[in-house]
């Protein structure tokens, strides 16, 4: 089983921090005219948010694993709900590599695997080095072409 790049934790922590800070700003905005929120509570919410994000990121990194098995791409992930997914190569419609602004800053990219299944079943593997992402994309593409089925939808 392959793990993600350790730097992915920074990305997740950054995302959680941004969320917590936005929440803090919202609280600060409604403070004067909707209801009184003590400054301590505001700062507390932000700190707790960041701390939770930190714990979540560390745990998620520990459980996130993937593997190329003989017939399928296999992934394990999830903190609250642990999910083991198998995406048979025959079912791969196309494969993307993507990177967002924070990912780019961290030198990471993601591989997104699309199937014809329902929307939320599209699979994203984050936290790969750009080289590894491209390599994975090529491998998956080759495997998908190799095992192409003609009963596509």
């Amino acid at each position: 089983m392959e793990s993600l790049h350790p730097r992915i934790r920074l990305l997740w922590i950054a995302q959680a921090a941004i969320l917590a800070i936005i929440l803090g700003i919202v609280l600060a905005a409604i403070d004067p005219w909707l209801l009184e929120i003590p400054t301590v509570a505001q700062v507390g919410v932000v700190i707790v948010g960041i701390a939770l994000g930190l714990a979540y990121a560390v745990r998620l990194y520990q459980v996130w694993q993937f593997e190329l098995q003989p017939d399928a791409l296999y992934l394990e992930r999830g903190v609250i709900t642990f999910v083991e997914t198998a995406v048979p190569f025959v079912r791969v419609q196309h494969v993307d590599t993507q990177f967002g602004p924070i990912e780019r800053a961290l030198g990471l990219s993601s591989v997104v695997v699309y199937t014809a299944g329902s929307r939320n079943a599209d699979v994203r593997i984050p936290g790969l080095t750009p080289d590894r992402a491209r390599e994975l994309q090529d491998t998956l593409r080759d495997l998908a072409v190799e095992s192409e089925a003609d009963d596509a939808v």
Partner: peptide, 13 residues
């Protein structure tokens, strides 16, 4: 079986 796209095992806490 030949219509299966993906299979997932999910476990909540």
């Amino acid at each position: 079986y030949y219509r299966i796209q993906t299979v997932s095992t999910r476990r909540s806490i």
